[in-house]
Nucleic acid binder design. Sequence first.
DNA 1: CTGAAAGCGCTTACAG
DNA 2: CTGAAAGCGCTTACAG
Lengths: 359, 359
Amino acid sequence: MRHHSKANPYQRRQPSAGRATIHDVAAAAAVSVATVSRVLNGTANVMPETLARVRAAVDTLNFVPSSVARNLSLQRTNTLGLLFPEISGPFFAQSLRGIESVASAAGYNLLIYSMSAHPDINAITSIPMGAQNTDGLLIMSDAVSDDFVRKLYAMHMPLVLVYRSLPGLPLPAVTVENKHGARRLVEHLIGLGHRRIAFINGPRANEDSDWRARGYYEALAAHGLTHDPALAVEGGFSEETGAAGARELLARGAEFTALFAADDEMAIGAIAVLNAAGLRVPQDVAVVGFDDIVTARYIQPPLTTVRAPTEQVGREAVRLLLAAIAGAPPPAQTLLLPVELVIRQSCGYRPRTNDERPM
Amino acid sequence: MRHHSKANPYQRRQPSAGRATIHDVAAAAAVSVATVSRVLNGTANVMPETLARVRAAVDTLNFVPSSVARNLSLQRTNTLGLLFPEISGPFFAQSLRGIESVASAAGYNLLIYSMSAHPDINAITSIPMGAQNTDGLLIMSDAVSDDFVRKLYAMHMPLVLVYRSLPGLPLPAVTVENKHGARRLVEHLIGLGHRRIAFINGPRANEDSDWRARGYYEALAAHGLTHDPALAVEGGFSEETGAAGARELLARGAEFTALFAADDEMAIGAIAVLNAAGLRVPQDVAVVGFDDIVTARYIQPPLTTVRAPTEQVGREAVRLLLAAIAGAPPPAQTLLLPVELVIRQSCGYRPRTNDERPM
DNA sequence: CTGAAAGCGCTTACAG
DNA sequence: CTGAAAGCGCTTACAG
């Protein structure tokens, strides 16, 4: 008989079985809920005695306001959503760290939606996803379909694309200088005299992969080197696929004096395979990676790579999202964060050694 | 004039400026909101034509139900909260991964509260924290004060302690076998003939530190070795503090043939300092760490350590939390997840080499 | 300075 | 099979 009880509205609530609500506090302090709300939010002047009574009631009742009720009333949630494929690797962890720091500095919480849990668009469109418990969404990687992004856009959900793009929609986006970094790396190898440079790319249909591949081809072309298809294989941004890529190159009998792996993890896998095949790095083959994950510095030989500012990507992404929530128009173009060439020993170049172990 | 408009209740809502609500859908489909709710949730039989009309309306309006309204009505949020100090290191990232996997398998989302953003208990008790937008909380590490945990407990919030405890409250808790792992490690060193084993501990007042220290002392005592205070220093679970600890030991002129660092990161920092001082690892001093972070395998020499099942900790923590939410009584004691000794080269023991690079 | 009441957008026990 | 209405726990424009 929860409904249709017109009897005595003041007895509507039982003495409160579960957590205390604002009504319990109001009753205990002998004031209206409006007043309780005001002292909670400091949103109006309240008489000192009233204030004290309310505070006391809040204390004894262990009252914590329900943010879901508050959110519903205020039409904002103070939380930012994160759509990502799965938590994995240093790449995501570092980005998350940046996201976390500026989000919490701005008073926002983070809601993590794992796309692996919501593979079905329907599941997303329907209840569990409930896009409205979030003030804005960070869409990471290619985990989310273009269609779904368009749907969110049509709903006026503030959106920022991270490590991905979506031509046609005026959305803020942020990523790193993939092409430029790859080009610098390959040009460094060319500068060291290498002419036959193998390439283990990232997964097909991944934007990071695409740009890194372009950087590779551009560098070759810029230096009058034709690219030999036998020197390029596809990988998957993991040690295993890097190892597989190296095995395939060796199996093909491809001749190369240098190898560019599109990320550090693949470079590490590749080095293991090269070593196992009796090839020394960098004497027999120079190897370079991409990202500068922590391990890159510790592996033998220390890995020459390009530092991707993943944490900064996270920070900038949140800044863009907060701006979007505030109603700012999206920037005209994708924010491309600068990368930095990190020369260590795996490429065979040894000007100095300070970089190996900054301690 | 949002309120007090008794005029025509059916015109209460404008043609909808922002996102569509259930009322917009109901109007478009010429049914009641109750019916819309029913087709959305599949919670009752609906006539085929009605169903089709509603579906069409949902589609054209790009309707996504507000989960905050739904949560308020249902009195549950389908999200789990995570209270942690700050996102950092592989330790947290791995745990998060485990947490994520079982949470999303059970249909729960994750809300991350960074304690660095809410250092003030007041800030937590008051609005921003709003503990009620979460069905349960995972309390990681010592980020949260005991008092606050007690308050949450008093509010009947389902709780699980991760990597920490709180004697006196019957709360589910999960962590790893810190003491046992440390003891095995030190006994391994003793078995290799070491008698003077230095120790760089974790931060003071940290439970992992405490237990690892106990394991160290127990191992010494069990083998009749007295522990020399000059051989123990305090660190902070980071490369920097590991390096500082090693420097301090050297500065003291402490004599030792082995060193146990309470985590891998400190071991890595310490090795760098030892090397810089002209000491070879393991020939001059054997070094062991704890956790088995990814880098442990790649550093030179590969690090002997103990594998902490961080991902499993995350998984078990969520399982316990879901059980608590479902009303299960808390387990009688802390769940201690087993660790595993990982012998590599930094301790000087070389039975075989397969473990170095499983590729 | 304070209260009564409507509204935020859902769900669901009643009553057809 | 479907609708009217109350309720979830807050906030806030009105009106004292």
